[in-house]
Design a protein around this nucleic acid. Structure first.
Lengths: 334, 334
DNA sequence: TTGTAAGCGTTATCAA
DNA sequence: TTGATAACGCTTACAA
């Protein structure tokens, strides 16, 4: 390996000067600077990042915890994260978050990371404190970590989003609207459920608890839940269903197809997130667009500047959702 | 930050002993070992990974270069990589590969990586040599880097896979079969195209050059190409089409739907890879299953053991594809 | 079985 | 404007 010492020797200067040149300290005489640069080029030298990190206490690496990269929603955010990180000269370490291995995070990231970005997880008290003590900022996309105000959250305004979607359904004549998703407090979809309920109420519609379809976010899960629901029920208690994400909506579509239910004639189906597939299903899916790339951008920008909560929150307010009306929602005929 | 020195002081031993304990050197007396462990626990100590890397020249990190994580195929492989890496205590740095920034890889990964895993890219001569000189192994999934035998490639046997698929189509009576994909030599789909042609020939079928539909792998691209092809053509010159990946096949399905072409009645459509969506389109998609997770496993296992080419190649031969017949292919009626 | 001390490749302080 | 040199936190001979 070519080290800075080799460069110094080759250029006939001291090791310090090489450092100065690399780090663009202005003090170096242009002539020596060129000499050093030529040596760097000639030897093919690249600074050892581990050594630099050790000295500077800065890694230019961030840990990204995801639940399931197979979910195009998380993937979309990751793409935004990666793009912005690269632009700003930062690297990302991607890891599946496993609750059982939360403790390991401390070990894995020690001295290797300048902060953490969560894609919907809720860390434990002690973990957050640990990183806080180390001065490592933690940002969360989509899921507020209520217990820890130090963890900043980046998300769209789900109340507004749900209001847009429900108003659309109401205008089509729907009054009995179901919800599919995981409504438990620890789940990332909890916020969506809560705001769905709030928006529903604000529009003067009531919610039948029996119309809460618990599914875990995966397509197969939604498919299974809907299929057995349709098997058990002679007549649906709702004319429209809002799914916490598009994957589940697609699962619902599949189940309806299997059971001979026509969408949107017999049932209107809406998703959230607007993943690519949402526009290529049959029928195509009405959904709420979530600015995934932009939220990734924002997270990296904020964490790099270590901006306090206010700035992040303010920026997050500019994260705009958008109602996308397609074929899967139609007039209520029931 | 708590360092090893703090632990040593707290436990009343020398720094070396702390290291011995951490690295499980057997020589430490059980009593002192416990004492040290208690101190580690009490202080909440975790070894600084940058410092360790600097000393040991081992990072337990691997760089993963992808083209587009938005593609579920790459995502699937990444999930396999991540799962196995975590199991083996390794971390992954994910980066989009940009040809224009290939040079930067040397800088970004210097001293921070034990090797590179490519998801379909072809690195330049100099880059490969650079990493070779550093002793960093490079593995490629799906795309052989012909110029560099040192870069090991992990892939399924596309000749066999295409033969299975084409035999299926032939049995349905198809003789005029189109191909959609990027057939250029540098593109990851090139292998699929080549083996498609070989398999076609081996089955005694001929290929009409006009039936090569160039699309870049994305759904939208395929959709556009197919749509304009259908607009320009009064009568299709083929009765079946094989797409180099499922995304494009889904785009073709969309285009057919838009143009009022019934699949598989008017046209049989097949994809490759068997992504999740392939079983949820209308009609569902006939395709070749690619063991994405397994190929990710294999890549990490091989790169960790720094296994030579033969072992990797042999292992890769156990990577089994599988023909999945669904609704999108049917009897030839033309 | 434990301790001392020399590095790993940097950065940064302080003199020169 | 440059050059010594002391860290950074760790591993690992080698000595004790």
């Amino acid at each position: 390996m070519v080290t800075r010492d080799d460069v110094a020797k080759h250029a006939g200067v001291s090791v310090a000067v090489v450092s100065y040149v690399i780090n663009n300290k202005a003090i170096v005489k242009e002539e020596t600077r060129q000499k050093v640069l030529r040596s760097i080029e000639a030897l093919g030298y690249n600074p050892n990042l581990a050594a630099r990190s050790l000295k500077t206490k800065r890694t230019n690496q961030y840990g990204v915890l995801f639940n399931n990269l197979g979910n195009p929603f998380e993937t979309g955010i990751s793409l935004g994260l990666e793009e912005k990180a690269r632009e700003l000269g930062q690297s990302l370490i991607f890891q599946t978050f496993l609750r059982a291995e939360e403790e390991k995070l401390k070990t894995i990231f020690m001295g290797r990371t300048d902060g953490l970005i969560l894609l919907g997880q809720s860390l434990q008290e002690t973990t957050v404190q640990y990183f806080g003590k180390l001065g490592l900022p933690v940002y969360s996309i989509t899921t507020p970590v209520h217990a820890h105000p130090s963890v900043r959250c980046i998300d769209i305004d789900w109340y507004k989003a749900m209001t847009d979607l429900l108003r659309h359904l109401k205008e089509l004549g729907h009054t009995r609207i179901a919800f599919m998703g995981n409504a438990n407090a620890e789940h990332p979809h909890h916020v969506r459920y809560l705001q769905f309920r709030r928006a529903l109420e604000a529009l003067g519609l009531s919610f039948d608890p029996a119309s809460l379809m618990q599914a875990d976010g995966r397509l197969e899960s939604a498919y299974g839940v809907m299929k057995s629901h349709l098997a058990d029920t002679s007549r649906l208690a709702f004319s429209a269903i809002v799914c916490a994400n598009d994957l589940m909506a697609i699962g619902v579509l599949s189940a309806c197809k299997d059971r001979g239910l026509a969408v949107p004639r017999d049932l209107s189906v809406a998703g959230c997130e607007n993943i690519l597939m949402a526009s290529h299903t049959t029928p195509s899916l009405t959904t709420i667009h979530y600015p995934r790339r932009e939220s990734g951008f924002l997270a990296v920008e904020c964490i790099l500047r270590r901006e306090g909560g206010d700035a992040a929150q303010e920026a997050a307010e500019h994260l705009e959702h958008k109602l996308i009306v397609r074929e899967s929602t139609g007039e209520c005929r029931a």
